[in-house]
């Protein structure tokens, strides 16, 4: 960077900067300021144009995920975790995006089928992010989908690509226990050979999330 950059910063940020020996700083500031304004306008336009599409993409992705783990509910509600309980409406003055959210799915008959809960924990390579469906009435899982992982291709990534592994979570009974080989009990999950850490992370993530949110989910249901 040359000195010019520092001048530019002085125009836009509060950091105290020694003035470089520049010629007519005022004109430089004006130029940069004008450039900044033009750039800002351009960006706002681009932002405005793309935002609906981006939001739609996000909503679509979420919809797909919830749809998968709750086995295609008729509709679902977004609930927020506030002060140890679930609520439909976030308290005023709080950005709802910052609150932890769960999704309550309803069947065609309008009865609740279960919750979709997102959770994440460190896996083999990096954080594994997943979403799972849980029915608090009979304390069974409805499904699981990995949203984001960087596990080893061909090995750890089977937690999202191996149907045999993923389908085990349908109807499994938490707290889950990872086992080698065949699963015997409804609480068992057969781990992937050679990818024990990845398999375990999935199991642990679900157990931990339910340990934390399980009572809330159950309480919410009884309230209704």
């Amino acid at each position: 960077m040359t000195d010019g950059a520092a001048t530019g910063v002085a125009a836009q940020t509060p950091e105290p900067l020694p003035e470089p020996a520049a010629v007519r700083p005022s004109s430089l500031l004006v130029t940069l300021g004008a450039g900044g304004a033009v750039a800002g306008v351009l960006l706002v336009i681009a932002f405005g144009l793309t935002l609906p599409r981006i939001e739609a993409n996000r909503a679509h992705a979420l919809h797909l995920a919830v749809n998968e783990v709750l086995k295609a509910p008729a509709r679902y509600d977004t609930l927020y975790v506030v002060g140890g309980a679930l609520t439909k409406t976030p308290p005023p003055g709080v950005d709802p995006k910052k609150l932890e959210q769960v999704y309550l799915g309803f069947g065609p008959d309008g009865r609740a089928v279960g919750f979709a809960v997102g959770a994440a924990e460190p896996g083999f390579q990096d954080t594994i992010r997943l979403i799972f469906g849980y029915d608090p009435r009979n304390r069974k899982l409805l499904g699981m989908k990995v949203l984001e992982s960087k596990e080893t291709p061909g090995l750890g990534d089977k937690i999202e690509k191996d149907r045999a592994f993923v389908s085990q979570f349908d109807g499994a009974q938490p707290p889950l226990a990872g086992v080698k080989g065949k699963r015997a009990k409804p609480t068992d999950v057969a781990m992937i050979t050679g990818a024990t850490i990845s398999s375990r992370t999935v199991i642990r993530t679900i157990n931990n999330a339910l340990g934390r949110l399980g009572p809330l989910l159950e309480a919410y249901r009884t309230e209704n």
């Binding site: 950059a5 010629v23 130029t31 940069l32 750039a39 960006l43 981006i54």
Partner: peptide, 29 residues
């Protein structure tokens, strides 16, 4: 002006990158 040319370049580039970011996010999420 020569003194602020790199800052201006970066401003321009950053603007285009942000546009590109929005575009990709919208088109190929």
């Amino acid at each position: 002006p020569n003194e602020i040319r790199i800052a201006s370049y970066i401003l321009i580039i950053a603007t285009f990158v942000t546009v590109a970011e929005f575009g990709l996010q919208a088109l190929v999420p």
